[in-house]
Design a protein around this nucleic acid. Structure first.
Lengths: 239, 239
DNA sequence: TCAAGGATTTTTCTCGAGATTTATAGAAGA
DNA sequence: TCTTCTATAAATCTCGAGAAAAATCCTTGA
């Protein structure tokens, strides 16, 4: 298989180096909003919080540029990437372009192993969705993880490493926005039913139906975020 | 417009920092094959060649990870990303998926400014193609630059920063392969005619024809690279 | 009160050296 | 001769300090 594409770290790889450790924790904090969009990321302050040297922290920030979660401006340091409703619309549509194509390939090429892993991922996701009723932030975190695992399992049989690479970046981006919509706007959607339908169509290898359900599914999140008040996207903080 | 996507440096931006300078020169050298695919990139050696400190060079290498031209393996340094025929096929098809969509959007939304810049880019490219007959490596380099500018001008009116971002990465990747095919296999294609047809269809806003010409155009390069002997893709050097 | 200029503080960028880890070469044993 | 272990060499990773740039504050003058 094609080794030239940088494969993402499958969620929780034990960091082999201090840079990787700081990178993982910083990424988590940015996605979770500890460092809000637009925030200036000062190396001198952050090196204490993450308990590494200045040079090491700089390298971690540089790695986050790869994920487009941080932007570097020469001679003017680093910032958390800003967010906007236009950006999320762009993310969503580009992600759909890639993910529907990957899903098509996956449904066509996926073998028994792929089927088994999809069944397993769907099962795990269903369990997490049962526990989601009460506003437990730990359960929400687990759901987020399994939701990602389910979507990635669906397209795992696609032979295109590049599509999966870009999909991963976009999914990660959309996590920041999804988090916003969860906090402010308890969505009345029956997400489990959507996932069930997507699961059924995928195992039935019904490409047309699966891609159409996926599209609806993702666009519905876009609509939910669009309902948010504009203040959420101000995001040009100083500190 | 959407500021959240890291916009690529438009070819030759004056580097504001030593890291950026080393990054640009390293990128050029990797694309041109000075550092062949798979080569180990030892910081201690490279810092002399590029005349910067060790830490600075490490940062430049980290930036190249963003372009997927370098892979970092924790505790085991850096390598030039390997190449393979499967990878190029993947690059080409993913690039077509993105670039045809961007072209569709561009033809639909592009205004007078866009038209003017496309005309200008096509003109510059045509001039470079006239001078391409003799095997002048300087002219080939200029052609490569203008070819890229033409393709990027065509899709510049697309509102999707993410598509353009990914397209840029993939185009950069394909440059490494295109260079291979130029050196070994003087292609008998009439590239200028293909560009002319693409240009005509685009200005006529004939979306169907333009995307189909673009697809043929890009796939033809894929075929040319496929004809190369497999030795070109060995690429697991030690030094 | 406001604007402009300059001095001070903060922050970024850069480098070299020490500590760890990995890779290499050689010796010992089967 | 081949494997395994050990010692040596090489490379990576990490840190703190100094130089350069940017941001901030303060004074001065209209």
């Amino acid at each position: 298989m094609n080794e030239a594409v940088p494969q993402r770290t499958p969620e929780a790889v034990e960091p082999k180096t201090l840079v990787e450790g700081a990178y993982q924790r910083l990424r988590r904090d940015i996605i979770e909003g500890v460092h809000p969009p637009g925030e200036k990321l000062r190396v001198e302050h952050l090196k204490d919080r993450y308990e590494v040297g200045a040079g090491t922290l700089r390298e971690a920030l540089l790695l986050l540029v790869t994920d487009a979660l941080v932007v570097a401006q020469g001679q003017r340091g680093f910032r958390v990437s800003p967010i906007s409703i236009e950006d999320f619309e762009d993310i969503t549509r580009t992600r759909l372009l890639l993910e529907t194509e990957a899903l098509r390939q996956s449904l066509q090429l996926g073998g028994e192993d792929w089927e088994a892993s999809v069944v397993a991922a769907f099962h795990r996701l269903s369990r997490a969705e049962q526990k989601l009723g009460d506003h437990d932030s730990l359960a929400a975190e687990e759901w987020e993880r399994r939701n990602r695992a389910f979507h990635e399992a669906l397209i795992a049989a696609s032979p295109s490493r590049w599509i999966r690479h870009f999909q991963h970046i976009l999914y990660q981006q959309s996590e920041r926005y999804r988090r916003l919509s969860l906090f402010s706007h308890p969505i009345p959607r029956d997400i489990h039913a959507e996932h069930q339908a997507l699961f059924n169509a995928s195992l039935a290898r019904d490409t047309t139906r699966a891609t159409s359900i996926l599209t609806e599914h993702v666009l519905r999140t876009l609509d939910a975020v669009k309902l948010l008040p504009a203040e959420f996207f101000a995001g040009k903080h100083k500190s």
